[in-house]
């Protein structure tokens, strides 16, 4: 529970927060104690990149990298600049991914966390560049990488250049893998589109949070294509598990220990 003070320090602990799934109200204090999981219905609240890191990292070990890269409306796409400004002011972040290094039980690793509050963590040049740089850094410094994915997919406001980020990051993941280094992905709600079709599915070990939505095509498109009712659990982490695409479902309170164990098992190989 080392994270508790850090998270509570950022909010008004007695403020009431309502669950989006079941409308159950609880104090921020209680929610944080419960890892931002609704005590009533078990719904996992979506987390900011920094809160996620606070839940996982040894205290004061996170060192951020490339925090100052910002997106550019280079295609002059209608509405993009406004959306960027709005996302920056609501999240106080420069873009949709936080990258850096941290320690878990004293073991160093590189980490990236995507933040769905920032334009649904869509991947444009900045997201692609930051994650690529992180893999290059991890390869040069023989570090494992842990990546928490969440994304609506490629950022269409950057056109085909956002698509190219998929290959760019994949190349860096491949080099990291060829160096014999460990890459763990943690699929969180929601991981879709071009991120699913690239680095989310490239981990040596793929973990997922329970009930996270994970898929390639959007549910509505699939429904239209298939012209039939889809099962309720379609594209859930459980559905992926059943079909063999996830190594383990890890409840949020067990995530840190699980990652710690995996780092320990791969120690020495970095």
């Amino acid at each position: 529970m080392g994270f508790f003070n850090e998270l509570v320090g950022k909010v008004n602990g007695s403020a009431k927060i309502k669950c989006k799934k079941c409308s159950y109200e609880d104090s921020a204090y209680n929610l944080i104690k419960n890892y931002y999981i609704c005590p009533s219905c078990g719904h996992y609240y979506r987390l900011s990149g920094r809160d996620r890191i606070a839940l996982i990292a040894d205290k004061k070990t996170f060192k951020e990298q490339d925090s100052k890269l910002v997106s550019k409306d280079f295609l002059e796409f209608p509405g993009y600049q406004d959306k960027l400004e709005k996302a920056k002011s609501t999240t106080k972040e420069n873009d949709a991914v936080v990258c850096g290094t941290m320690k878990i039980d004293g073991r160093e690793c590189a980490v990236f966390v995507m933040d769905s509050r920032f334009m649904m963590a869509s991947m444009g040049s900045v997201v692609g560049e930051k994650i690529t740089r992180l893999f290059e850094y991890a390869t040069a410094n023989m570090l494992p990488v842990i990546g928490f994915t969440a994304s609506g997919g490629a950022r269409m406001q950057e056109g085909v250049i956002s698509l190219m980020q998929m290959a760019k990051v994949s190349g860096a993941v491949k080099n990291h893998s060829n160096a014999g280094l460990l890459y763990i992905t943690v699929l969180t709600d929601p991981t879709t589109g071009g991120v699913t079709a690239s680095f989310a599915m490239q981990g040596d070990i793929i973990l997922a949070e329970p009930k996270a939505l994970v898929g390639f095509a959007g549910r509505r498109v699939v429904e239209q294509t298939t012209k039939s009712q889809l099962p309720d659990n379609f594209q859930s982490a459980e559905f992926l598990m059943e079909h063999g695409f996830v190594d383990a479902l890890v409840p949020r309170p067990e995530m840190r220990d699980t990652l710690s164990r995996l780092l320990k098992i791969h120690e020495g190989r970095a």
């Binding site: 890269l69 910002v70 997106s71 040049s125 692609g128 250049i161 190219m164 290959a167 760019k168 190349g171």
Partner: peptide, 8 residues
């Protein structure tokens, strides 16, 4: 592919 990206 490394060269794709336009940012500030």
């Amino acid at each position: 592919f490394r060269s794709f990206g336009n940012f500030d």
